[in-house]
Design a protein around this nucleic acid. Structure first.
Lengths: 219, 219
DNA sequence: TAGATTGTTAATCGATTAACAATC
DNA sequence: TAGATTGTTAATCGATTAACAATC
């Protein structure tokens, strides 16, 4: 099987882990499947998935067939059942609690969108340091003061923090989050964050994606 | 050289094109370099770049050395000069004009951030259909009515459109943009967009990135 | 000089693709 | 049955990595 790897730096972890590429692609399939389902589709072919994800259709069938025979020849894949299967593979069938930091425009956009909710992520708290914002409501949440961070993270078993704060505040916040036991930091600020190796930082970078997309137009 | 490819579906284009992976990685290096420069750093080693991008340091040196000898042994890479080199390679030394659609929280966050500006993208217009928003100011731009789309895109030579609109409005908007000659659509809505093959759609998907990041914590 | 880091080679592994039999 | 699409094979190519001489 080409599906598992014991990759270099991470080989201290269990070998029962997908190759990086497979995990990334499965996540993308999930996004398209979730949206296709919202649009009322019930089945989807590997070719349709390929059109939306820019992943080759053979590769998609290959990725999926490594875990079982999920499709029906001549028909395609049942969307509901494929979503359930991929969630199982990615261990994301359950719900994950998210804490959101920053109640500005970006934080508000994130909290009121269902982009995370659709995938089993629930925003359980929004924090800010601005006295004018603390106490105000965003969606069905009340903005809390930053000093309650520790308490909320423990009580709600928050593993993921989303940072929608100014770059100047990001590193201090990240330090506090690490100390509070957060394992995944999703960084929307521009700051380059330093964290211990057991914590994962993902820095969202729309401009990078855009540079990349534009390259193929300009070249 | 392993740098160029004439990939399957795209082989109708000039062969003078980077491999997909190289272009994606160069874009990421650019993000880190830009931010490192903001923080006052003047040089950076391939190892430091590796720490921030999660790309292996050997691969970074390999990617760069394919285009020239940009580094200094025992020292690292000069950030300013590396930024200039990579921009040249990606053909993004010039400035690109962006039109932004949607003046809600997300649109406002994008327009007032310098996440695009740092990479040579300039938001030249913000559009909305809401009468209450049209005419109001976001940063130093005045929100324009959607009906002016065509005019602005022609006058400002807009090639990139950023969609921060509800999913229900996205496809109609995309159709209009394609007709107006836009070549790259950066989609922040959840809609799956259908466009002709000469237009590139990039759908931003924070939840996908998060699922992926979380997998390596949960596995 | 001594330490650090690049540029490059060689070897391995995963990704990609075309093609097609199986089968719904 | 006929058409469509999966599951799988085989072949190729790019990504990844360790290692190290070159050199700042």
């Amino acid at each position: 099987m080409t599906i598992y790897e014991a990759s270099g730096e991470d080989s201290e972890r269990a070998a029962d882990k997908l190759a990086l590429g497979v995990a990334a692609r499965l996540s993308r399939y999930l996004q398209v499947l979730t949206q296709a389902r919202k649009m009322g589709k019930e089945t989807i072919s590997s070719q349709e998935l390929a059109d939306y994800t820019h992943v080759n259709s053979t590769q998609i069938r290959r990725d999926l067939s490594g875990f079982g025979k999920f499709g029906k020849r001549g028909v395609g894949y049942n969307i509901d059942s494929l979503v359930a299967q991929i969630r199982k593979i990615l261990h994301t069938s359950g719900q994950q609690n998210i804490a959101l930091f920053g109640a500005g425009h970006l934080g508000t956009a994130i909290a009121t969108s269902d982009i995370f909710a659709d995938h089993g992520f629930r925003v359980v708290a929004v924090f800010d340091v601005d006295r004018d914002k603390v106490g105000s409501r965003i969606g069905n949440l009340s903005v809390r003061h930053y000093r309650e961070l520790r308490e909320v993270i423990d009580d709600e078993e928050v593993v993921v923090a989303v940072l929608a704060v100014p770059a100047s505040a990001a590193q201090t916040l990240a330090d506090d989050l690490v100390e509070a036991g957060v394992k995944v930091i999703f960084n929307y600020s521009e700051a380059l964050l330093q964290v211990p190796p057991e914590v994962t930082v993902h820095t969202s970078s729309p401009a990078v994606d855009l540079l990349y997309a534009l390259y193929f137009y300009l070249a």
